Simulated assay, not measured.
Amino acid sequence: MREETDRSQAGTARVDSWVWAVRLFKTRSAAATACRGGHVRVNGVAAKPAQQIKPGDEVRVRVHGIERIVVVQRIIVKRVGAAIAAQCLIDKSPPPPPPEVRASVPRRDRGSGRPTKRERRETDRLLGRPSS
């Protein structure tokens, strides 16, 4: 416990811990996984989970296809209420697209993507290709 207090007084924190504490992710492990997957950037550079952040850093987080851009205002390492979490960051995220635009984005029906192995065999048989 003393270790966490020392880190927050020093003015730095792990990026995975901070994005979890300010409620950008539901769990710390989800935050760490997003960092390892390249979905978290600090000052334009992909961040590893243990990267230290400080006030003034810009953090870009991609969650469920939506990019959130926040500037670190205050360092916290423990999860807090939504009102306090909002004071720890400045949200510079662009507004979400209107529902009409989101609905106009084409989506492929489930199962209409790449053919299965069985379907490929049937296609090869129809086209007279030799089976391997």
Results as ranks from 00 to 15, higher is better:
114 R>A: 00
107 R>H: 07
95 P>D: 09
3 E>W: 10
58 E>S: 09
103 A>H: 09
107 R>V: 06
117 K>V: 14
2 R>H: 14
119 E>R: 06
67 E>T: 07
61 V>A: 08
15 V>E: 01
59 V>A: 06
115 P>D: 02
31 A>I: 00
29 S>W: 04
51 Q>A: 14
66 I>W: 15
123 T>D: 06
11 G>K: 07
27 T>S: 05
131 S>D: 11
130 P>T: 15
4 E>A: 12
130 P>D: 13
95 P>R: 03
59 V>M: 04
65 G>A: 03
26 K>M: 03
73 Q>S: 15
56 G>K: 05
93 S>C: 03
22 V>H: 02
88 C>M: 02
41 R>P: 02
31 A>M: 00
36 R>Q: 10
100 E>R: 12
126 L>I: 09
3 E>S: 14
83 A>N: 15
55 P>D: 06
89 L>D: 05
7 R>I: 13
23 R>D: 04
122 E>W: 05
42 V>G: 02
82 A>D: 11
35 C>G: 01
69 I>C: 15
108 R>K: 06
74 R>P: 02
5 T>L: 12
56 G>T: 05
73 Q>Y: 13
90 I>E: 12
45 V>R: 10
57 D>M: 01
43 N>M: 00
84 I>M: 13
13 A>Q: 08
42 V>S: 00
84 I>Q: 12
48 K>C: 05
116 T>W: 02
27 T>W: 00
75 I>K: 07
61 V>R: 04
55 P>V: 04
19 V>C: 05
105 V>E: 09
47 A>H: 01
107 R>A: 06
100 E>G: 14
70 V>A: 00
4 E>N: 11
111 G>M: 02
117 K>L: 13
36 R>W: 00
100 E>H: 15
113 G>F: 03
22 V>R: 03
1 M>W: 11
10 A>M: 08
106 P>D: 03
121 R>L: 01
94 P>E: 14
72 V>K: 08
41 R>T: 03
